[in-house]
Amino acid sequence: MAFMQAVLPVWVFAEMVIIQILLSRLVFKQSLLKTVIVSFCAGLCVLVFQEYLYFHSAGASLALIDAAGYGLLHLMTYAALAYCYMHFINLGETARRIRLVRELHESPGGLSLEQILKCYNAGVILENRLGRLLNNRQIVLKGGRYYLQGRFMIFAARSVLALKEFLLGRGSEFDLPKDQDRS
């Protein structure tokens, strides 16, 4: 296997990052999600095309089953790297810890708890999150009440809840684990 073919998913991922940055600065200035989806699809097209070219040129020296194996491995690597990248830019946008770190960074002399809560508190978090959920049409506001709209977020939320219960034995970080609860 040629070295360039081996590093293909990493190379395509680097291209995806550049496309995403350009899209975010020049085209979709308001929606990070759109930039990630479009750049991921662009990278995917490049990856599939490059795979096709490589295996076409390899001809009979590479069995179809091996070609499929390498293709799947590259796809898995690229998708996982893209997912990590999406998570990274999402952290910068939505994570509470990162927002707190940035608030402290802007005040080199330090901030008291009261000062922190003045600029970043539950009200701000709620407003930001509600805004994003409404903008992304995950929930909808009708007559002063919120209703579920998109199915993806509820699927994600239920999956995370199921994993939490399976791995940690509790549904929330504020719940006691089941064994401690019983005692």
């Binding site: 978090i125 995950q138 977020m153 995370v160 809840l161 994993l163």
Partner: peptide, 14 residues
């Protein structure tokens, strides 16, 4: 999974 995401908690509440 380790910490509660407010967005996921809100979606589950709705």
């Amino acid at each position: 999974i380790e910490v509660d995401s407010p967005s996921l908690v809100m979606v589950l509440d709705v």
